[in-house]
Every structure is written in C-alpha cells, then in structure tokens.
Design a protein around this nucleic acid. Structure first.
Lengths: 177, 177
DNA sequence: TAGGTCATGTAACTAGTTACATGATTTC
DNA sequence: GAAATCATGTAACTAGTTACATGACCTA
C-alpha cells in the first residue's frame, strides 16, 4: 500500500488534473495566482513534488519534441485519478477539526501585552488587514466567477471565514471598549 | 538583528509566559490540550523549540535542585517579553491574508470526482464532521470560560470560523441539490 | 511494589523553502 | 537585439514529526 499523500502533493495532483496537459511551469503559475498562499509556488517546491508524483506513477510526463527547453506535458494516470478522488473523499475528523489562523494564535496571548493602547492597536490593525483581505478576495471571486464554478464556490468558503473573523474581531473590540 | 521567530516558536514563548514558572513537560501538555492541533505536542517537537528559545536568550531555565529528573523551571527573560509582544503586534498582511482550510482545499477539486453520488457524500460528510468539531469546540469553550478569559475569547474565533464553514457547506449542498 | 504520571531527551527522517543557476522562446 | 517570459532544475538548509529511550516520582 502506497503512503498517504501530503496536502501539497494531493493539491498539486488536483491542479495538474485541472490544467492537463500542462507543464510544471503552468502548475507553478496556478499556485502563484491562487487566492490563498498555503504553499510557496517556487521551483524548489513544485518540481520535486511533480517528480515525486511521477515516481509514484500518479502522473505521466510526455516530452514535447521540438522544444529544446525540455518542455514536458503532464497529465494524470488512471492511478492518479483514483488517488485524487480518494484524497478528496477520504476527508477525516482531523482535517475537519479546526481552522488554523495566525490571527487567532496571537489573540491567545494578547492579554500578555502590557499596554492597553498596544492591545487596542492590535485589534484595530487585525480588523483593517482582514477587511483588506476580504476586499482582495471579493475581487478575486469576481474574476473566478467567469472561470471554473467549482473554484469560485471553493474560494467563497474563504470569504465566509474571513468575514467570520471580522465579526469576531469586532465583537472583541466592543468587549474591550 | 535576530531572525524572525516561527509561529511555533512564538506560540511556545507565549505558552511559557502564561504558565511560568513551568517545566517543558507542562508546555507539552498545554499544546496537547489545545483546541486546535496546529502542532504536534510530542517531545521531539517541543524540546528542541525550548532549547532554541533558550539559546536565543528569550527564556531562562533554572534547574530545580532536589529533583533528580533534571526538572527545570522555565520563564521569560526581558528580551523574551519584548520578542513575544513584537510577534503579537507585528501582525502583517501575509498572516491576515487568508484562513487555510483542508476542507476548502479539497472543495477546489470536487468537480473532478466523477460520481455525483460521491460528490454529494463528500458534502454531507464534511458537514457532519464540521458539526462534530463545532460541538467539541463548544464543550471546550465551556471549560475555558472558567479559566483564562483571553483563551476563551481566542477560541471563540475558531468557533465562528467553523460555523462559517458549516454555513458555506450548507449553501453548497443546496446549490448542488 | 506495581502502575501511572512526570520529566527528560535523541536519532532518523521528511517535507518544504530559499537562493541559485541555466538556457530557450517570444515579443517589441 | 534586448527584454520579458517560459521552462527547466539543484543544493543547502530549516523546521517539524515519529519513534525510540530512559529514569524519577507519586499513589494506592
């Protein structure tokens, strides 16, 4: 039995499936353009992952003749298709358990900041940055609406969560005031 | 200028500040009991971090005499205090940008699952697991309410976000149906 | 005195990042 | 022909995980 794929590997598999046939370079671009930067889109991140997926027999790479750069055309194998489907549908309690959030992590320790002024400034700042993120996401969604509907619906979840964070931050600020 | 601390290092610093004076073992327990499992609470994770913080001069460890296990009492140095405050208040756009979520990651690729039945099953499953997580978080919050208020308020943010996810998932299911 | 908890760690590994490096192709 | 983009990668590193290992202390 093959080992469980990491989130990045699975996600890469999904991106290749969406774009296939495509080059690793296109995959990188897709990661770079994504609404959320869960992973670095640099070559050092993506190329080794693609290599690994290939070694696992989940994708195949056809060398494009006539391109001296070594351009390769990636696409999923049958095993890749099933691995992708399994990753999606085998969502477990651990993955669904929680939503990690660096703003919330800091909030746990905000009481340790001595100055009331600084604490307040943090809340205001977090609110402002979250509003900015919401605006960016809305803009992003408008673009995505024209493209794949499933990407649009997925990103919508991110908007919901940012809005929930904003609501929470406002609640906290009222409480502090 | 010292390098920027990682989220885990900063978070560990915060936990030590909350519990000080305390042993590394207590820190591990705190991570293990946390509502969200952002990091493993195993010895191999925590001990090296504590060692690093000590080497950076952010915490000090007084050897407890009379305990042959080598029990040490950790607490923040003055530099540790400022580093902690800086980490909290220097929240930037990158940290505030988005809320990563493994459920949402999978959603991006759900359209690639061939069977409509499987797609639907995924949505139902995600909903059920999210509801479970919400129940667990609520129970956790009830306990936390009695303890530190700041931890309670922070964890409340997690509840808000899980609820937002549930709302989103229900929206998607209605749309699919 | 036995079993559970408290308390320390280490070694091997894995995944992901950063920074570097090269050259082909296309476009102006 | 210069500049931007397309396209490939590698090497060194860092952080975090898993699994292992040891022994003291406490309580029934």
């Amino acid at each position: 039995m093959a080992r469980k794929l990491t989130e990045l590997e699975s996600c890469t598999l999904g991106v290749i499936r969406q774009l296939q046939p495509c080059s690793t370079y296109r995959v990188r671009q897709a990661f770079a353009r994504a609404a959320t930067a869960d992973w670095s889109a640099s070559a050092g991140t993506i190329y080794p992952v693609v290599e690994r997926l290939q070694r696992l027999g989940l994708i195949k790479a056809d060398n494009q003749s006539g391109d001296r750069r070594g351009l390769r055309s990636l696409s999923l194998t049958a095993r890749g298709e099933t691995a992708l489907a399994r990753w999606i549908t085998s969502l477990g309690p651990a993955e669904a358990a929680s939503v990690p959030d660096p703003v919330r992590t800091r909030m746990h320790f905000l009481a340790l900041v001595r100055s009331a002024r600084d604490r307040r400034a943090f809340l205001v700042r977090a609110e402002r940055l979250t509003m900015q993120a919401i605006r960016r996401t809305r803009g992003f969604l408008k673009l995505e609406r024209q493209n794949a509907e499933s990407d649009y619906l997925a990103s919508l979840g991110g908007l919901y969560q940012l809005e929930a964070r904003l609501k929470w931050l406002r609640h906290l600020r009222r409480r502090v005031a």
